[in-house]
Design a protein around this nucleic acid. Structure first.
Lengths: 241, 241
DNA sequence: TTGTCAATTTTTGCATACAATTTTAGGGAG
DNA sequence: CTCCCTAAAATTGTATGCAAAAATTGACAA
């Protein structure tokens, strides 16, 4: 299950109301997001409306509405009269996205340092050591999950809803690339060291330093992802979660 | 006319194809964007589907698709079974948005400094002096237009498509607030000085400094917008462009 | 007056039908 | 065999109809 299902019209602005039965187009958007992120729909793959409708058990009207949302999020690409495909960002697109995420996380780090309470830091610390454990055991999947959790949590600590939403959206576009970024053992260890520095800076409430570490961390992650892409032209089929 | 009309599925990722007749839902999205940004549809105002359909001369299906896009962009807020309203960001939302835009422009400044050519700088310089002229004449509207052009152009100079798109989207959400930010004469003059520093830093290719100036510039703009909001509880009706 | 509740009206959500466009298949002509 | 053209099939774009939910109205009681 994806953590992206957070109700209707998730804009980053405040909006909260009870909500009873979820509209089909929201349901469809969530399902499709999962299918794309988990690789069930491969990058570049054509999405035929009727086929997906049959699969999800709904009609084209709500599905098309969902597709527009996904297109706005950058997960699918629409070509008028020629259907939709799962977005397959070029290396340049991926690089651009990493850069922007880096800037967003840097800002998040600065803001977080102004607001974190001790128990927030403790929480991150727990996640960090769990992640370290998985790293020493070579458990890539679990490591990745916690890695992502830490970054998400840090961004959440910024308290900036617009930032949180923008970060979540961009992150979804390159989930696959972030996953493969830590495939090499060397990069993996480097990433752990960077995460330690993040934790230190956060504990010291050194916003400037945390921002710098995060930006560097993301730049390195991009470099690693690029190297992986270059070396292995035959990527993995389903990397999921 | 809005500068947001740049074809189908504007995701920030590369995508370019001829395109002949534009779908109605795209047309509708553009028209609605304009209506919202120009204040024809006021913040908080309810949007009734049938009414808008009559106005634009189309049926509800494409309109609803357009509304989903606008919701993803943060311009409208959807409430299941209860219709859509023009987003009316809280002061906190506006502040958050300014912060994120500041971080994006800071990144743009850094990247731009690595790529600008002399004629790019010359172009910005021209815009700058045109803007200065309007400032001395007290022509707020023309000043605002050029001010925005300069910021947009700078972001474009980053060459980062994801960044450009994210910036464009967030900018659209708080166009009104950015407009009112320069209402006070004092702030106006301060903004001009900051713009001069931007130009200097860009000409010197000093990315660090440009980033710093931009972040500060946006922070000050936010402060000015907040002050304006606090002092004038009776805002202007249509601020448009 | 104020509050409550049910009937009516309005509005949204979804499915279906049809039109427009693109893709595919097939059949010559060179 | 390849190219080009045409007709059929598939796919997308839009309108319309109906069901479900919410908003409105108004009568009635406190």
């Amino acid at each position: 299950m994806s953590e992206t299902s957070q109700g209707p019209a998730t804009t980053g602005f405040s909006e909260r109301q009870p909500r009873q039965r979820r509209p089909l187009h929201e349901e469809a958007a969530d399902r499709l997001r999962d299918m794309i992120v988990e690789g069930e729909l491969a990058p570049g793959e054509r999405i035929r409306e009727q086929a997906v409708c049959d699969r999800l058990g709904l009609s084209r009207t709500p599905l098309r509405e969902a597709m527009k949302v996904l297109a706005a999020e950058g997960l699918v690409t629409l070509q008028p009269n020629r259907g939709a495909t799962v977005s397959d960002p070029s290396p340049a697109d991926v690089a651009d996205t990493f850069k922007v995420i880096g800037a967003l996380e840097a800002l998040a780090g600065e803001l977080a340092c102004e607001r974190v309470k001790e128990n927030d830091i403790a929480e991150i610390r727990v996640l960090h050591y769990q992640m370290a454990l998985h790293q020493t055991r070579g458990e890539l999947r679990e490591y990745f999950r916690l890695n992502q959790r830490i970054h998400e949590r840090l961004v959440e600590l910024s308290g900036n809803r617009v930032l949180i939403e923008a970060h979540r959206q961009l992150g979804g576009r390159i989930r696959r690339q972030r996953f493969v970024a830590n495939r090499s053992g060397a990069r993996w260890e480097q990433a752990m060291r960077e995460h330690e520095q993040m934790l230190e800076a956060l504990a010291a409430r050194d916003g400037r330093r945390l921002a710098e570490v995060l930006r560097l961390h993301l730049d390195n992650k991009l470099t690693a992802a690029e190297r992986f892409d270059r070396e292995a032209e035959k990527p993995l089929a389903v990397v999921a979660d």
